[in-house]
Design a protein around this nucleic acid. Sequence first.
DNA 1: TATTGTTATACTCTATAACTATA
DNA 2: TATAGTTATAGAGTATAACAATA
Lengths: 164, 164
Amino acid sequence: MAERAQFEELARQLSAVGAVKRDMGRILPPDCPAGSAAVLTLLGRHGDMRMSKLAELLAVDMSVTSRHVAHVAARGWIERHPDPADKRSRILRLTPAGLEQLDELSRRTTHLLAERLADWTDEDVGDLIRLMTRLRASFGDCRSAPLRLPEPVSEETTRTPAST
Amino acid sequence: MAERAQFEELARQLSAVGAVKRDMGRILPPDCPAGSAAVLTLLGRHGDMRMSKLAELLAVDMSVTSRHVAHVAARGWIERHPDPADKRSRILRLTPAGLEQLDELSRRTTHLLAERLADWTDEDVGDLIRLMTRLRASFGDCRSAPLRLPEPVSEETTRTPAST
DNA sequence: TATTGTTATACTCTATAACTATA
DNA sequence: TATAGTTATAGAGTATAACAATA
């Protein structure tokens, strides 16, 4: 168990990491704020899903999810299909334009991070990712979905954000 | 240098850490939102300072700092003294009531983190603090260093022109 | 009656720009 | 003219509550 001073420092770092997030937000494409980018990213990683599932992954209220999704859908980046199994639900799916947008997002964030973290080793970045993932999990975050981040690109037919 | 997939994952974690921050925000005392808490914390940690210095530590615009400070001052948690060396400046100082509020803040955040991170070792927390601190340092003065974006792949996008 | 999703409303945080007071 | 700080305005993100459609 850590000490009080450490917890206070962690709280400070959590508060201050907003500056990094804002910096990332400044290089987003036009009409694609952070909320939209998160929607596209999660759909790209986890595939088609319902609103409620997306809200869970975003860890925000469904009303917030609805707004972000409406924004993204209005720009043609996703489509909302009726769920044959439950007419109340809507299945979200990336469009080809959405895949392009997602690729542009990936290119920009990758470029920014590669520049800012030029002196970080692969292991440094991996450690930070692992600890942040664990932090979210410790806060009762249901988002720890089986994300096959490692390298399972066995097939290219599904929506993978066109990396490489 | 890390790889693209790693950078994408880090971007996702940065986006998602907002859920943790919101969870922390929910246990703040009445009339003390996150912005106010950050002001009190930084004054408690670094001692009396001017607005411009506080804005730098907060990593937000001075106008934002001014609003937070006004909120905190209106509740009697800090005082704004004239700077004898520069009459444009104001020296910020915690009041006894501010110190009490700061202690309450510390108690609540420590309690929450101690509960959420019950299975974290002292070293785990230290590693996360170190890496987040380094992350912020690597982004440094992100506000004054606009990033040059790579050229879009094929289509002509409507990006902000030149920006110079 | 419960659940899925949308919409209305309000609040927090932030940046830009215009403004004042002083250097 | 330049700087420290304030205020007005606008935009993004979020949560709560009321609502509609379906289970």
